[in-house]
Amino acid sequence: MSENTKTLEVSVWRGTQEGGAFETFSVPAQESQTVLDVVSWIQQSADPTLTYRYACRVGMCGSCAMMVNGQPRWTCRTHVSRVLDGNRLEIAPLRNLPVIKDLAADMDPFFDKWIKAGGVHRPSRTRHEPIQEVSPEEPGRVEANKAIECINCSVCYAACDTVAGNEDYLGPAALQRAWTLYNDEKVQDRGAILDAVSGSDGCLNCHTQGSCTRYCPNELDPLSAIAGLKRAVATSFFRRRA
């Protein structure tokens, strides 16, 4: 097949937090090849010491995100043909996160902020009370539903220039999660959520340029969620003073 005679020039970041460099590999092109297929081919056929991360390969687990030609992508669902620059690919670890080794970014800061933004569910009832009924049509539930497909891939976090400039900024995914909980009928203490997201590292620092929404592979909209949080926080400013 003529498809198989073509090769891709793939530059892959090799190194750790201390430093590193791009290393170029020639990879046979295939039909319907994903970026993750390319990385796996390198690890299996060219250099078994290449470190990277993936699990589901179907866009469910959120572990395979990398920078591809300078843009954050979920590599298991990104077709090479859609991102190829000539016959070149440049693959690097996710932006805005420390590097463990090669293509594996350290996700700890991303998840630490998820918790810091109040992302842990705090139930308002105990297991001994009856289950609270929630109508799927209730407006808060409808709003909360918009973001529940987040797979924690950190693509939005890597795309966010505010995170790049302010390392404490909680980032789009964590703030979107806070907005989901804020709208969740089962959550009682809304004030605690607003407190968690309105500090000097919180939603008020978002520049509203929307790279998060542009790059989210699940087509979620953290930008609008953050706008909702800003409105809620600003309203509470007057209400709490009154």
Binding site: N166, G199, L204, V233, F237
Partner: peptide, 12 residues
């Protein structure tokens, strides 16, 4: 680097 007070001061 904006907390609620600074943010509101800037908007107002």
């Amino acid at each position: 680097m904006l907390d609620l007070r600074l943010y509101m001061a800037q908007r107002l």
